[in-house]
Amino acid sequence: MKETLHVRVAHKRREAEDIVGFDLVSPDGGRLPSFEAGAHIDVHVSEGLIRQYSLCNSTAETDRYQIAVLLDPASRGGSIAMHRAVREGDVLRISRPRNHFPLNGTTGRPLLLAGGIGVTPILCMAEQLAQARADFEMHYWTRSEAKTAFLHRIRSSTFAANVSVHFDDGPAEQHLSLQSVLAHRADARRAYICGPLGFLKAARDAASEGGWPDECVHFEYFKPHAEGGLTPGAFEVQIASTGAVFVVPPDKTVTQVLAENSVEVPVSCEQGVCGTCITRVLSGAPDHRDLVLTPEERARNDQFTPCCSRSSSPRLVLDL
């Protein structure tokens, strides 16, 4: 996080309804640190306002980073600022690219699934696979053609034949469900999935029904992120039974905040060893920091240890 660099906004353009794309280049026109498909950068939109965006250009390009930003109607700062305040020529501070969503090899005909703005890292993967001359299958679901970013780029690409685009409001014959795409798994095949939380949840259920092993299904949480108000490292927890929402600041644990608000969760070891405090998560993506859950349990994101774990999404809804 400390390693930030400055980039200049070389181009800002409308990619689709409510989606703008940015080309970010080095202010001196030089090379940028390289990246792999699936990588994202932190953009310091303004003081204290940091947002993560996946890179969506080809990894072969060394002179620019391309990102795309959806205007979130519930935005409390980030996407509005990116849409309205950031202009061509502005200089932005960003982190070096980091990758929590890497491609695990190019063989086995990878399955790439994108929902809405979640297309950004998926498109980057498609570019990388096409360059490696690897076969793959990509599906891209959007509300309508008008809201579909990169449609022209995909249709005119060398890999256009590998991609099926499905519009919610389009004719029935182009509709396709996540269930049918994930119904059968071929040996050694891996799936890479990015989109809004609801899309990811549906995809996870479909993958599990289709018999996909957890370790072969990779998710990127495209974050409709902690817009506004919250300082970095802070997030909200919501108590499902009462609807109450509490902010967890970076220097406190979830159980501390809950105890201060008279919500009792049994706690013992206070460091994620014993599992006494394991709590069901109804929505949101926990940032697991415990030592007790198995990797498969962590990947399901339906429970976490509030004594030490945090959140990757702006809010966790807890089954309390």
Binding site: S268, C269, Q271, V273, C274, G275, L291, V292, T294
Partner: peptide
């Protein structure tokens, strides 16, 4: 009883 850090493997076994 309270678990400590060295209990990670033990807790995995008990689970």
């Amino acid at each position: 009883l309270v678990d400590i850090r060295s209990d990670v493997a033990r807790v995995a076994m008990r689970r």
